[in-house]
Each structure stands twice: as structure tokens, then as C-alpha cells.
Simulated scan of single mutants.
Amino acid sequence: MTERGLDAHLARHAASGARHAHEVAATIALLAQTGITIARTIAEGAFGGALADKVGATNSDGDSQRGLDLLTDELFLAAAANSPVGLYASEELADPVLIGVDRPLALAIDPLDGSSNIDTNVPIGTIFSIRPIIGDPVADPLGSFLGPGHDQIAAGYLIYGPQTALVITLGAGTHVFVYSPARDGFHCVMPGVAISPKTREFAINASNHRHWDEGIRLYFDDCIKGGHGPREGEFNMRWIASLVAEAHRILVRGGVFLYPGDRRRGYAQGRLRLVYEAHPIAMLVVQAGGTATDCTQPILDIAAKELHQRTPLVFGSANEVARIGRYNALPGEMADRAPLFGKRGLFRA
């Protein structure tokens, strides 16, 4: 067990005296092992038989399901059954599953984020959130999942790409582990990730420009004007359409991600799920020195009203997230847009 290995990291946490530290460490170890199995299945591609579509099948929120969506959900549920997890909530299931009344943890999971990208070999992943069970899990199985994001005691994701990586926070920093087949385990390659507060890179689906509210449109327009616009600098734009892949890029090299609500039918509150996508990603980002909001308020302050609740999501470099909040709140009053007072105003050469 090397000092930078996942097992050593989890052992140190288990001995830390933190709330449910032993149980959290044991649960993450099982999630990591399940992730290795899933990564191997994905690597088999069409030869593995797990990528087939389930014609007409949809999850609890109406999204189409792939065969691998269902397989990963089954594998993580089986892992949870052998862990200290008493309640299991998944994107693929309408309601939480009660595993055991004498277990202290509630696990919320998106078993396979970005599954629409499977055929194009784009990185996909698993996002998870760990909370303590509160109240009576038999009488109120939903209650443990509906608190604010601050109730989480651990969060993370697995990303299945050129490398299989596990990114976790146990409440004291965010750490990146990469799986090494040669070393037969996950090993830390980025301890204590720190997201730069400044960035010149943003990620958004620009095809929705006409549907955005004014503030988001103005922010985007100012960025793409580059050195000739009010931002007076060149920006790069990215869009992978995989939340895990977007988050991983930002944790590794900075940037900001935007998935706002818009005027399309069913998109007023965005499309990402609060409990098992936005909350865990926000915890990881905040623990790395970044910020995460719904364009207005911190994501971790928001309590869910239902398990599959959707939310707008902006996260990444703190200064840029704050700027986006100002555009959203006062789109017509941004100082760098006012011709009389901007850096390139009426009275400036």
C-alpha cells in the first residue's frame, strides 16, 4: 500500500475521526473497484455487448437509456449492498432503494453520465454523492437526499477515458487518482487540486444562444469578441456534452462551465440534476478553490424539493463565476459595457 495510493488515502481518512469516516472510506473503495469493472466493460466496446440500446426504454425522468446505463446502475447497486450504504438513489430509478435500516450512509449516483457519447468514444463517467442518513429511512427514504449540498460528507466521480480516474473529496480538499493496471490500483497524481480564480476558457453549448436569457447572451458575446471587445482578451470555448469530462478539464487546468436555464420547453430550470450531479460536482469544485452556482446562488446552499430536481449550473474559476453572476443579475448595468465609463468609452482614445 503506497503512500499515494487510494487505499492509503482512505485509511488515513478512516483514522481521522471525521463523521462516519470508516464507512465513507469503505464505500469509496467499493465504488472505485466497481469503476474498474465498468472501465473494462467500456473498453470492450461493441465486443462486450453492453452498449446496445434498449429500444423505447427511458429512465425515471424520461431520458433514453442505453444498455450500459442499466448495467452500471445494477453494478453500483450491488456494490452498495455490500457497503455501509443504507439508501441508494440513482438517475435510473424513480425512487430510492432501501438496502438496510442499520446502515448510516445515503448514496446518490448518476451511474453513467454522458452515455449519449458512448458511440463516439468521448470520455463518460460516474458521479456520486455521499450523505448521512437522517430520520427514519423506512418512513422517509427521500428525506436524506433533500438537504442542501453542504450535507454531503463526501463526493466524487469516476471518468472513463484514455485514463480511468477517480476524483474525490472527503471534505478536506479535492484529489485526483489515476488507475494503473501495472500497479493494480488507483494512485494520486494531483493532491489538493487548486483551480485558478482567473481563466480565459469557458464551456457552453453555443447552439442554444437564441434561447438564453439576456445576461448569458451578453456574457458569451463579450467573450467571443476577444481583444476587440470589453473583455480585452482572447478566450477559448469548449463543449464536450459530458459533465464529468467538462469538470475534469476544469479541475486539471481551470476554466468555467455554463449550463443555464433557457426558454426552450422543459429547460427553464436547466437540465442537470441537483442531487446527484450538481451537488457533488459543486462540492469537488469548492473544495478545489472554485465556485459553483445556479447563476445566482451557491449550489451547495440549495436544498432539493424532489429527488430528480433539475437546476442551472455554472462552476469553475471563482472570478469568472462571479462575473457571470453579475451579467445574470444586471445585464444592462455591467461597468465594462457602459460607453461613458468603460475602458474603451466615448472619452478614451
Rank of each mutant, 00 (worst) to 15 (best):
R210K: 13
V122R: 13
I195A: 05
Y219A: 04
I216C: 06
Y160L: 08
G161C: 04
N121A: 09
L146R: 11
I195D: 10
G215R: 06
N208V: 12
G192N: 15
D140N: 15
N117M: 14
N208Q: 14
S129V: 05
F128I: 06
A139F: 06
S207M: 04
P191M: 09
N117A: 12
T126P: 03
A139G: 11
I204E: 01
V193Q: 01
G173V: 07
D136K: 08
Y179W: 14
C223D: 07
P123M: 12
G161H: 08
P132A: 06
G173W: 10
V189N: 00
L158I: 11
T174W: 07
L142G: 03
P162L: 09
D140R: 11
G171A: 06
G147C: 02
Y157A: 03
D221P: 09
E201Y: 03
I204Q: 01
F220K: 04
F145M: 05
F220V: 08
P141A: 12
A139W: 07
I195N: 06
G171I: 11
I216Y: 08
F186H: 06
G114C: 07
I204C: 01
S196V: 07
C188L: 11
H209G: 01
T126D: 04
H150D: 08
G215H: 07
G149H: 04
V176T: 12
M190A: 14
D213Q: 13
L170N: 02
V178L: 05
I153C: 03
G185Y: 12
T126I: 09
A172M: 10
G226P: 15
Y179K: 04
I130P: 02
A154L: 06
V176M: 10
I159L: 09
Q152E: 14
K225F: 05
P141W: 11
F128P: 03
G114D: 02
